[in-house]
């Protein structure tokens, strides 16, 4: 087993453990912390694949901004442990098998045995960050501008939603 493969399995195992913990934890803040573990592990996997820019953005935006927003809201609302309510009978017995079937179906669809994908080696794409920036500002410049508009709309929407009604 090569060191790279070993690092992959450690990070992948941690990510899956974090995701399982997200499902099993009762308190939302524990779920949020598990999700942070998953995101950091995914950033490590991006680094392993040689996508440094995406790894950095993953840490800064997901681990930094979005999760802080989540934890801020959990603390602001003082969210306690979640109340269990009764599942329907179908959900109780068919829920987990159906979830497994979904995972298997996705995995089977994306992993075809005769695929001509060559294994991920580190620098398949030389100077990935440079290429990303060039593509972002040339080929994808209109979608890029649209995302800035989307962010603006989201900011206004969040402000309108969160303000208190004046009487």
């Amino acid at each position: 087993m090569t060191p790279v493969l070993l690092i992959f399995f450690v990070l992948a195992g941690l990510a899956v453990l974090g995701a399982v913990s997200l499902v099993l934890q009762k308190h939302p803040i524990h779920s949020a912390l598990s999700l942070i573990v998953v995101m950091v592990c995914l950033a490590g996997l991006y680094l392993l694949m040689g996508a440094e820019f995406v790894a950095a953005v993953q840490i800064i935006v997901y681990g930094g901004a979005i999760m802080v927003l989540f934890i801020f809201v959990i603390m602001l609302l003082n969210a306690g442990e979640e109340e269990r309510t009764d599942f329907s009978k179908i959900a109780k017995f068919a829920g987990l098998p159906l979830a497994l079937a979904l995972t298997a179906a996705i995995a089977a669809a994306v992993v075809k045995p005769d695929q001509s994908l060559h294994p991920v080696t580190e620098p398949v794409i030389a100077k990935a960050t440079e290429q990303i920036s060039t593509m972002l500002f040339k080929e994808f410049v209109y979608p890029f501008e649209l995302t800035s508009f989307l962010i603006l709309v989201a900011i206004i929407g969040a402000l309108v939603l969160a303000q208190r009604e004046k009487k």
Partner: peptide, 27 residues
């Protein structure tokens, strides 16, 4: 080196767990 398939399987597992959490969680 790590085969691409491993990453795709990991991605499918994480997606499945996300779907499970989406359906089972009440909060």
């Amino acid at each position: 080196m790590v085969p691409t398939q491993y990453y795709l399987i990991l991605s499918a597992i994480l997606f499945g767990l996300g779907a499970v959490a989406f359906v089972f969680k009440r909060n």
